[in-house]
Design a binder for these strands. Structure first.
Length: 405
DNA sequence: TTAGGGATAAGG
DNA sequence: CCTTATCCCTAA
């Protein structure tokens, strides 16, 4: 599946490793060359995937930007995202078509032909290709239609999950720790809106008093957050079609009894202390400082929401100069009207067991064949769409279970 | 992060 | 009940 990526040479061969064996090399050197500055954590391949997949499929973003990102970001395999592969094909086609209509002959320029002859590209237009073969105008219409039909990016799906159409489910199923994170992402006003629709008051004063104490003991509680993004943050993809069971987001990072009761006491206990189920009776827990990764805002007690605009933000316009037909003004994502169906019975931890689909099982087997048993993280990254709502532990357990037959 | 033990929801 | 698939906990 070779593809013409434009001027940048394809960095694609694979996410940095093809060997099915253990290799725990340093993920990346925070090297001085082009790498992220010291103030930013390095981008993982998974992050790069999210960025590229979003940018590639947005027609308004020029190809120069896309190829620049392609060169700058860690390499990502396009195989697993229809949107990414299709967008790349469309960009290649557009590049080949650009400025080629001058002769008005309607003839397909050779460059465009070359692109269409790429089986990796042709695969996306199985039905229409024959019709379009020699007709530039028809090909352009096809390209337009395909752009319009591109599936949403994982980032957009995730945004919908936490603040859009899926917000109610997501929040209803989130435990307190997860909600804390959601609040940071979404902002307190949106949080109120969501909780209001859920019929829960805003969660009790999210005290962040820890900022004050945290004596010596230094880095003892530094981790435990980093991994959080992997399992809990990716929303389901392709879910739109079947809301049958797919739409109960679950977050399992921290063991916590979920309650719908709005006034759950804060959980100012180091996670290690929570493991037992008796924290309620432990008399001195309140003195502990909760490990918190957030620098609390002096006034609000919270880091400003990531959704809120920063004063330092700068806007670059793509001077597209042309069609402003679908000029969409920045608008808030619409929350669906509240339906009472999702209210879980109070006190009951409502976790939905998710059956493994046949496709997930087959993909898991394929992943083990390609990457080796035990490299669950790599497999998950290799098939982000398939395993979006499966943790690496889920995958390990599933494979173990499948082996027993 | 992973492997393995154990708990528990689901379904006979 | 018993079995099975899924989920959770913890050591390393």
């Amino acid at each position: 599946m070779e593809m013409d990526w434009g001027r940048t040479q394809s960095p694609y061969p694979d996410p940095e490793q093809a060997q099915p064996n253990k290799k725990r090399g340093g993920e990346q050197d925070g090297g001085p060359d082009g790498g992220p500055s010291a103030t930013m954590p390095p981008l993982t391949a998974a992050d790069a995937f999210l960025v590229l997949e979003f940018v590639a499929g947005n027609r308004l973003l020029p190809h120069s930007l896309f190829s620049g990102l392609l060169a700058a970001l860690p390499s990502v395999s396009p195989r697993t995202s229809t949107r990414l592969r299709k967008a790349v094909a469309l960009r290649a086609l557009e590049a080949a078509l650009s400025g080629s209509d001058a002769d008005g002959s309607g003839e397909l320029p050779r460059k465009a032909r070359d692109v269409l002859d790429d089986p990796g590209v042709a695969a996306f237009f199985p039905d229409h290709l024959a019709v379009v073969r020699d007709d530039v105008a028809a090909l352009r219409r096809l390209v337009d239609a395909e752009w319009a039909g591109l599936p949403p990016s994982a980032l957009e799906l995730e945004a919908d999950r936490i603040a859009g159409a899926g917000a109610l489910d997501t929040w209803a199923n989130a435990d307190q720790d997860t909600r804390k994170i959601l609040r940071l992402l979404v902002g307190e006003s949106t949080e109120r809106e969501i909780l209001g629709k859920l019929g829960e008051g805003p969660s009790k004063a999210p005290q962040v008093d820890e900022a004050a104490n945290a004596p010596g003991t230094s880095g003892a509680n530094e981790d435990g957050r980093a991994q959080q993004d992997d399992e809990a943050n990716l929303g389901r993809g392709k879910g739109e079609g079947n809301h049958a069971q797919e739409d109960c987001a679950r977050h399992q990072q921290e063991p916590v009894e979920r309650t719908t009761d709005a006034r759950i006491p804060e959980k100012p206990v180091p996670s290690a202390a929570i493991k037992g189920k008796e924290q309620a009776t432990s008399s001195h827990v309140t003195g502990q400082a909760a490990p918190d990764h957030n620098k609390s805002h002096p006034v609000t007690g919270f880091k400003p929401s990531l959704m809120e605009r920063k004063p330092s933000a700068i806007v670059y316009e793509w001077d597209d100069s042309g069609d402003s037909d679908s000029e969409r003004p920045p608008r808030k994502r619409q929350l669906p009207t509240y339906e009472r169906k999702m209210r879980p019975p109070p006190g009951v931890p409502h976790k939905t067991r998710k059956k493994w689909t046949e496709m997930q099982e087959k993909t898991l087997i394929e992943g083990v064949e390609n990457y080796g048993k035990g490299n669950w993280k790599e497999i998950k990254i290799a098939y982000p769409d398939v395993f979006q709502d499966r943790s690496t532990v889920d995958m390990k357990d599933k494979f173990r279970n499948m082996g027993r037959h």
